[in-house]
């Protein structure tokens, strides 16, 4: 322990050891997973649409991951399936079309890996983003009103103006319209579904 080379080599090999184990071997093992063909010939998982990919960017820049995880653990481990967050666990293949991983480490709010299947109604997501307490009075999710525009109604009202805002409704003559970012985010949320089968997802552990 008297010379730099000993420390240097020790430090190098310990880190190289874990990098090989934690990164390199898994990369060889499942870094190039392909989509899987179901019995009816469809390929799973389906690719993200252009709008949903933009929505992922909104998801990333707002940091949704810091309160919402994006993974369903296996039945019997941690209550994920009991909460109804998914009927099966999520597996590595479910994520291959997503450019950035947001598995998350916190559940201040519920898991979102299967949210598109759980709540397929786009309107619900818009109002929930605008003010989460309209659907969940106990929610502490901050309102994302800045994803919407308050406009004066001129002529016909906007076809996708938010309705059912209760006490959050805009004053007479105004309407709340989703921005492009809100549209993209909701498209991403709706694309998050675990409603298909993969062979490895059914395996018992």
């Amino acid at each position: 322990m008297k010379s730099l080379p000993v420390i240097f080599l020790g430090v190098f090999f310990t880190l190289a050891f874990s990098w090989t184990g934690v990164v390199l071997i898994p990369q060889q093992q499942f870094g190039a997973l392909e989509r899987q063909e179901a019995d009816d010939g469809t390929m799973h998982p389906a690719p993200l649409s252009g709008l949903a990919t933009q929505g992922l960017q909104v998801y990333l820049d707002l940091g949704c991951v810091y309160c919402h995880s994006h993974q369903v653990r296996r039945p019997g481990f941690g209550g994920d399936t009991e909460w109804g967050w998914g009927d099966r666990q999520s597996v590595a293949r479910d994520y291959i079309n997503q450019p950035v991983m947001v598995l998350g480490t916190m559940r201040t709010g519920p898991d979102l890996k299967n949210v598109g299947d759980r709540i397929p109604d786009a309107g619900w997501h818009y109002t929930h983003l605008y003010d989460s307490r309209l659907s969940h009075p106990d929610s502490i999710m901050p309102p994302y009103r800045f994803l919407f525009e308050k406009r004066k109604i001129t002529g016909e009202p906007h076809p996708r103006a938010l309705s059912g805002l209760g006490d959050q409704a805009p004053p007479e003559g105004y309407e709340i319209v989703p921005t492009r970012r809100a549209d993209a985010l909701v498209a991403f949320l709706l694309s998050q579904r675990l409603n298909y089968d993969l062979e490895e997802a059914q395996r018992e552990f």
Partner: peptide
């Protein structure tokens, strides 16, 4: 040059905890 799929998560936690 991101790796694909959940290998990213492994790199992520290999880094963050280290």
């Amino acid at each position: 040059e991101p790796v694909r799929g959940t290998v990213q998560s492994l790199v992520n936690w290999w880094f963050a905890h280290n």
